Simulated scan of single mutants.
Amino acid sequence: MGGALSLTLAALAYPAMLGVKTVSTDTSRIIAQTQWGPLTEADRDFVVKVRAAGLWEYPVGQMAVQKGTSKEVVTAGQHLIDGHAALDTTCRKIAPMLNITLPNLASPQQQGFVAQLNADSGRQFDSDFANILRITHGSIFNTVAKIRSTTKNSLVRALADQANDTVLDHITVMEKTGLVNFDQALFQQTAPPKLPDTDVTPPPPAVGQPQVVLTPPPNATSTPVPVPGDPAAPSPSPTVR
């Protein structure tokens, strides 16, 4: 792989790369009491991370379908579109129920991944696509497991169940391309550099801006998590401390 990709991969595995960093060092601090269980900082940030992941991986999946030079790369792109559309639906359902504001744009770092892959073509695109996505999914896998094992909020737990299945599926299809450099992926996942918060935090949505919706493909196989009640009119609203 070229030098440009090497520089990009050096920053991939920062733990907060798929969302915002928490505002305190105690991620277990309860920020709201809801009818679905207490909501911690880690829970809230996880919902934002899942949303932010879809905002860059969904368009990258579309690129793979259009530009991939092998059947395996095209298939991997289809899985990204399918999986993140379903995860995004779940995020958009539960966020208002938990009083969580979702971003409409990925973080600057994530937007950089999209820009790089948009500039790639041919086999270079295939290689960069498979390695970037394998490293990012490998890095977030442990985060999903931690949230699933610690959250006391049933809505966040359901999202973590869905995310676990989706991330594992995406790891698998990236590996099936035959292009993943496993030594490099392991190194990036176990020795991540630190990045400024501004690079890894998706910007808040502009006031009055319509919410971005990731549309499921016509042949979608992934399904959102069913949630109780109407997310457009949550009751009761959580009380934020």
Rank of each mutant, 00 (worst) to 15 (best):
G3L: 15
L5T: 06
L5F: 09
T8H: 13
L9Q: 06
A10Y: 08
A11C: 13
A13K: 00
P15Y: 09
T27L: 13
S28V: 08
T40C: 04
K49S: 14
A53S: 13
W56F: 13
E57H: 04
E57G: 01
V60H: 00
A76D: 04
L80E: 03
I81Y: 02
G83P: 01
H84V: 02
H84T: 00
A85Y: 11
A85I: 11
L87P: 01
T90G: 08
C91A: 10
P96D: 11
T101A: 08
P108V: 06
F113P: 01
A115K: 10
A130Q: 02
R134A: 15
T136N: 06
N142I: 14
S149D: 11
V156N: 06
R157W: 13
A158G: 13
A163D: 05
N164R: 10
N164Q: 15
T166W: 00
V167P: 03
I171C: 09
V173Y: 07
G178R: 00
V180Y: 05
A185D: 07
A185N: 07
Q189K: 09
A191E: 08
P196V: 04
D197Q: 15
T198Y: 08
P203Y: 09
P203R: 09
A206D: 12
V213G: 02
P236I: 04
V240S: 07
